[in-house]
């Protein structure tokens, strides 16, 4: 079986985001970029499935600027076998990403398609679901457990009220939640080896997908500041403030 894993290049989760002074967007100059954390979990899951003998080959794909090859290399260092970079200087939207991924998944006949549940930059939480719909296949979103059994996969999902398990025919799309696994760190020899693994470069046009956006960003502003709070010296003072000043208890 083959797996396809989608990895997005995003601002590192530790970086404090700054909005540009002209309100045109977020300032990404000189900021540390990483694999979207959920996608790292997706790569780790694919590698574990490979180690368990369920999967033979792992393909990673990313759509974005040329620099996204750093994120593909990072995924290769974690154990993926080869990469596809679809270079686009236009910012891709989930539907466009899904269309490209569908093309790759179908040409490569991948059985398990792993994505993160959400990219931590735009917080969309859309791509995996869109991909599954375009392919007309099942989806297991927000996965905390994945069990492949024959030609089916059971996915346990983190939902608002608790946990839900669904059984999906393969091929299927799975999107990862935080509790699925804890990604390993790449070892130095593997980072070296990753540099020699194949990495194909493509363009959206190769897949017949246009990058025209149907969404115009009018402005991006920082969130409203909260007014500065105070330090209280004791539980009694806290209770008094909550009762008589804030009037919330």
């Amino acid at each position: 079986m083959k797996a396809l894993v989608a990895v997005k290049r995003v601002i590192d989760y530790n970086v404090k985001v700054r909005v540009k002074a002209d309100n045109s967007g977020v300032d990404l100059s000189n900021t540390k970029m990483s694999i979207n954390p959920f996608d790292e979990i997706a790569v780790e899951e694919a590698v574990r499935l490979k180690e368990a003998g369920v999967i033979d080959e792992i393909i990673v794909a990313s759509i974005g600027p040329k620099e996204s090859q750093e994120q593909i290399r990072a995924a290769l260092a974690l154990g993926a076998d080869r990469g596809v970079l679809v270079v686009s200087d236009e910012k891709p939207y989930p539907l466009q990403v899904a269309k490209i991924l569908k093309n790759i998944a179908e040409t490569e006949s991948t059985d398990i398609i792993l994505l993160g549940k959400q990219a931590i930059d735009d917080d969309n939480n859309q791509t995996g679901q869109m991909l599954a719909a375009l392919m007309g296949i099942g989806q297991g979103t927000f996965a905390s457990e994945v069990k492949v059994e024959g030609d089916k996969v059971n996915v346990t999902r983190e939902i608002d009220g608790g946990l839900q398990t669904v059984a999906l025919d393969l091929p299927a799309v799975i999107t990862t939640d935080l509790r699925l696994n804890e990604p390993r760190y790449a070892k130095l020899p593997n980072i070296m080896k990753a540099k020699k693994k194949p990495l194909d470069e493509k363009t959206p046009a190769d897949f017949g997908v246009d990058m025209i956006s149907k969404q115009e960003i009018i402005k991006v502003v920082p969130p409203a500041e909260r007014k500065a709070g105070i330090t209280v010296g004791s539980v009694d003072e806290l209770v008094d403030k909550l009762r008589n000043e804030a009037k919330v208890i």
Binding site: I11, K16, V17, V19, V26, I120, D121, D122, D123, K214, Q215, E216, I217, I218, K219, V220, V221, P222, P223
Partner: peptide, 15 residues
């Protein structure tokens, strides 16, 4: 909200 609520985007859709 985008970027974990560190920014708010106003977006116009043409769909």
């Amino acid at each position: 909200p985008i970027y974990a609520g560190n920014a708010t985007a106003t977006v116009k859709t043409t769909e």
